[in-house]
Nucleic acid binder design. Structure first.
Lengths: 340, 340
DNA sequence: ATGAAAGCGCTAACAA
DNA sequence: TTGTTAGCGCTTTCAT
């Protein structure tokens, strides 16, 4: 146990060469005679040498670490994004920290402090509401030359690359679909004061207006994004006899709470009511399967990761791009045609 | 943007003091006259100085970073553990990397490489099967003085502190409960060659033997831990008319696949069959609610995190402890009494 | 092709 | 109390 870790110096001594020669061999960036190179490789092997990352970073002023900030590390969609980001990052030699913000400004600030403190090279942001509140302080990162990109979420920050979802388009697809099935009274369950919600419900409303003369949209507002809140909101809506033939849930967590409330009231899907969700592919095994708006998390993640690293490494210097990636409506048996 | 980041030197110049004075003020470990201290704090403020973590670590030979290795970063139970670990770690000044191993030896090795490469101070391991396979190579960490503790999972590694779950006790509770309800034919869905499975089914069997003279345990083996695999296994068991009155699922992912298969075959819970799961509290909103074995993830995580850090900081030097923390059976409406 | 030496930003002896 | 200085382990000129 006492055996201390081998340094480049130890390797140099062991191989009988200078430390700069060792460095050249290890990094393979400077020509070295085969003879010495072999001896160095040998010594590295014997001593189990691994370059000290701290020393390297200190010199390079780069740490090869990134951060992924997201409001809820428990949300499967974000996790899938993280995983994909990590894969790309690892492939390019970067490690990434998963930092939860709990959707609170304070925790977000702490996370940002951490990014700065650890001198991370870049950060991915889930473009959520709390983040937008923090926006003003994001310059702290920019000032220090820390690269940033936005993923998922709905807020577009003009200063940075953003790879977001076409929420409006997604909402439109849902509305269009429901309208075609003959639905005229739709209950939306989800948070009220969220940009994402505005866009989703907005798209929905547009489609309804276009496709189905008279249509009514009722809101069942949840406090926050939890299944519990959705359960309560749904119970309230049922109690109020809101009179709806279809329910649209803001996301899978919301969906699962709403579905539970529906079940507890003996309302069956799709017989009693049709159900659609903005899904995180969380509920593949729910029965009946839920029609939902899905998204290529992995694709967007790879895009974002490569862009961030390209910025860091100076490969891309163009002005920030703002992309809205398409959502797809996966139709499953949770909705049915009704007679008007 | 071009503005480079302030170093301790800049602060020293700005405040008109020596760098060691700045250091003392920043770290508050050496007495400094109020006059100079104030000037330093001012300069720090003005220059927005934050000590360079790399430089610090280089000197300290400590990075204040930890790793949490787990087979599936998508599993809610592990994530909750991670979150709790992170909370404790942050409170004590450490950051933690979430590293997925996909339950594969190769990926686990890569994760270990990363731990070494980044010179992390310690690592949490989910004591899974793949990890046990890697066991022999874990000495690479030990050799370098990297602290380790095991959490969750079932494998006890004698060399390190382990905070595991009392799987057998959990299994026993399930068996006891089911036996009391009169069940004599029980189907177990889950992986076959897993230590955790052995222990869970073992406890179950013991309880059955103790409580219910003749009882039959049938295995529906899944390949891996996915809901998809469970769905297939359950379908097969139903097809084989295995004749069971109760199903016990290995975990929530398995449960969700099995439940889907049951539903697709028109078998209702608990009317058609009783259902119990080793749960990750993933399914609070499933209907009917599932009786399940639950666990205090947060508690174990805090325990493990504090222990790991205590080891790193030399606060604890006692020989490795091996604790098995109790599981609790949360009874919900998914099981019913049957007549024998 | 090889090596000596100067930092990278910080901490901690050691002097003053 | 304050300042000077020698590293921590590595990369990278710059000589040789």
């Amino acid at each position: 146990m006492g055996r201390s870790i081998a340094t480049i110096k130890d390797v140099a001594r062991e191989a009988g060469v200078s430390i700069s020669t060792v460095s050249s061999v290890v990094n393979g960036n400077k020509p070295v005679s085969e003879d010495l190179a072999a001896r160095v490789r040998d010594a590295v092997q014997r001593l189990n040498f691994q370059p000290n990352h701290m020393a390297r970073s200190l010199h390079a002023k780069r740490t090869q670490t990134l951060a992924y900030l997201t409001p809820d590390i428990t949300n499967v969609a974000f996790l899938r994004t993280f995983k994909a980001i990590e894969a790309t990052a690892h492939a390019r030699g970067y490690s990434v920290f998963l930092l939860g913000t709990d959707g609170s400004v304070k925790t977000t600030e702490e996370a940002i402090d951490r990014v700065i403190g650890l001198r991370m090279d870049g950060a991915f942001f889930t473009m959520s509401w709390a983040l937008a509140q923090t926006e003003l302080r994001l310059h702290r990162l920019a000032d220090r030359g820390i690269a940033m990109v936005g993923v998922s979420g709905s807020y577009n920050l003009p200063e940075i690359d953003c790879f977001l979802r076409d929420e409006e388009g997604g909402g439109y697809q849902v509305g269009d679909y429901l309208a075609r099935l003959g639905h005229r009274n739709i209950l939306c369950v989800g948070p009220l004061s969220s940009r994402a919600a505005d866009m989703r419900w907005g798209g929905l409303r547009t489609a309804l207006a276009a496709g189905a003369g008279e249509a009514k949209l009722t809101m069942a507002a949840t406090e926050g994004y939890t299944a519990g809140a959705a359960y309560d909101a749904m119970q309230a809506a049922i109690g109020a006899r809101a009179g709806f033939s279809a329910v649209v849930a803001f996301n899978d967590a919301i969906a699962s709470g709403a579905l539970a409330a529906l079940a507890d009231n003996g309302i069956e899907i799709p017989a009693g009511v049709s159900f659609v969700s903005f899904g995180d592919a969380h509920m593949d095994f729910h029965r009946p399967q839920i029609t939902s708006v899905t998204f290529d998390e992995e694709g967007i993640a790879a895009l974002a990761a490569n862009r961030l690293i390209d910025r860091i490494e100076g490969i891309v210097t163009a002005p920030p791009a703002h992309e809205r990636l398409p959502l797809k409506l996966s139709i499953r048996p949770s909705s049915r045609r009704i007679d008007s």
